[in-house]
Design a protein around this nucleic acid. Structure first.
Lengths: 203, 203
DNA sequence: TGCCTGGCTGGCACTGAGTGGCACGTTAGC
DNA sequence: GCTAACGTGCCACTCAGTGCCAGCCAGGCA
């Protein structure tokens, strides 16, 4: 169709532009708040037009939440790379490492982003939508990795849903501790609670 | 302050008005689609002003999704009413009965609503937001019912998250079967997959 | 009966998100 | 140099959502 050899270059320019806009935008959000920041302001700060902004992102929410997609993707990839004879729960626990490392790289920022998301209703909703898409990816990945019977798709989906639930619970606990608790430790506890050998909370 | 004896009457009028608007609105959504229906049209059909609509609902999404809140509340209530010496997983499974009964009352409508939610991104996001609030309620309810040590709040949160995950997986499977599979049966399977005595999917 | 008060409603105007269409500039290929 | 394609900016438009003010319709009170 077109000069394919040059597409990567143009693509890289777009990617760079995109990540620049992301940085600028998140900076504004953390500074002023999500609802208080208009797309107009973002565009002025980033040096692009409103129209272009909406060509890069579906909306304001997308800027914040798109980061999670990459992390979720890495998490899934991390899971399939694990040895097949390993216990599934261990693999699922380990699929959190990309997120762990990201948070460890800048805990204060991760914490600020958590509260940003939690405080803005529309952002929170978009975030949960992404988490649910992650759950869907994880469900297929579990089925294929262990080559499961399609009749157990429901069970695999439940395991996937429980895993992202553990992620949500652990990250929430971490944020509520003000980032003081150990995130890896919380992930360990969260996933251990799902293992069959875990002590039951009741009776 | 004011004539308290009459407040319930006025409240009932508001409730009736509200549920009428809900019926009209959902009818329009199922007929034309979510994004294709404007608030203007809803108001014309329901015989109210745009301003009044936004006094009753936070937005279009709220009309559809507010139903779930009631069901979630009933589910939590249903769970605490269960005997304390009963196995927790059984109680959690049984907290789905309000939803089950609602779906059983009009399966075709429940199915249509599922697809309505799934097809409209903003509606889907709002829905997941409600589900997550339900998860939060369930987490506190689990802790209080079994009088758990606050140090195991994380574990309780994981169990709650896993439960709503089972709900999501089961309802999705039901919808994808076109409503042919037994919803109670799917709920049984979904919650059984979380029990410690469940056969593990892998090796 | 007339007045007053409080809650609910409608109308109006405004901000801001998101979209479609068109024109311009830049770049790649001939 | 010409042209086709793509990215971008500008303009105009629809629609969601909100603040403000005016009117309506109770019930309470003299």
């Amino acid at each position: 169709m077109s000069p394919k050899a040059h597409e990567p270059l143009q693509q890289r320019m777009k990617d760079k532009m995109r990540s620049e806009v992301v940085e600028t935008t998140i900076g504004l959000f953390l500074d002023k708040g999500f609802d208080e920041t208009t797309v107009e302001e973002i565009c002025t700060a980033a040096g692009i037009s409103r129209r272009t902004f909406f060509r890069y992102f579906r909306g304001k929410e997308d800027v914040v939440v798109s980061r999670l997609s990459k992390l979720a993707e890495d998490g899934c990839h991390c899971f399939v790379e694990r040895p097949v004879d390993e216990d599934g729960w261990t693999g699922l626990r380990m699929s959190m490492t990309p997120f762990e490392e990201w948070a460890h790289g800048n805990p204060a920022r991760a914490l600020a982003l958590y509260h940003l998301i939690e405080d803005a209703p529309s952002l929170r909703a978009s975030y949960l939508d992404r988490v649910d898409r992650w759950r869907a990816s994880l469900a297929t990945v579990i089925s294929t990795k262990f080559d499961l019977d399609p009749r157990t798709d429901l069970e695999a989906a439940v395991i996937a849903a429980a895993s992202v639930g553990a992620y949500l619970a652990a990250t929430r606990a971490w944020a509520e501790s003000g980032g003081n608790d150990s995130l890896p430790g919380l992930f360990d506890r969260a996933f251990n609670a799902l293992r069959p050998e875990a002590p039951q909370l009741w009776g």
